[in-house]
Amino acid sequence: MPNHRIKDIEIELLLLALKERWGYDFTGYARASLKRRMESLIEHSGMDCLSRLLPSVLYDVEAAQTAIDAISVPTSDFFRDPPVWRYIRHTLAEQLNSFPLINIWQVGCGHGQETYSLAILLHEIGLHKKARIVTTDINNAFLNHSKIGCWPKRNLEAWTQNYQLSGGQGDFNAYFDLDDDFLYIKDEFKTTIEFVQHNLALDNAFLETQFIICRNVLIYFGENLQKRVFEVFQESLERGGFLLLGRAESRPEDLVTIQLEEYEQTLRFYRKAIRGHYV
């Protein structure tokens, strides 16, 4: 048996350990990218294979946490995919404003760049008083990081460019306090945001929403888990509410019970049917 297939077995063993011992169920995650992340976990641990990590993952909470952290990826950017933000700014905002109240669920906060992009945009279009942002993540460390709202300065130029391409007319830098190495989001953008731990693999809808943003989270899930998540979103969304996915993500093809219709296909906006058959 080639080595890489032995690694596949080791990954299943580790997932079983995290699930049965610590209650973290990653068994529904897509294996291809998980395998890559497990390989870097092994590299960082200085071991030569995953099964040598198993005893400490089973008995030592810190080793388990390291493995759990290695599974979630916080990569994010401000105003990533500018055309999507441009669309929210110029087209979707009006639709959202027609709801009497706007609950926005932003799923998978990473280090918060997407969350504050949204807060900035709502501010600029004057919806910040009416809209409430609830951001969730499985990883508490990421939620805390996002709450603080601080990032290394090295990406500032790219983020400013994204902001401008997304139709932003203001001074992007003015939304932050800067020191030599970091930018800190100004406090006024934090007040509209709630940070809540929520695991898409386990937890249910907890809020009625008018807009759900879930980008670059579903790619880490296998097909069954993706379907579960769509059911959670469908339940959470008010009729006529919107769902935004990442630009390379889509609704699972064979989901017959789902009333989420394509709304803007290239940018991946979906909408929950305004009328529909109740079963």
Partner: peptide, 10 residues
Amino acid sequence: RPGYFALSHD
């Protein structure tokens, strides 16, 4: 798996 893509943002 055979016949299916996946993406990652790692």
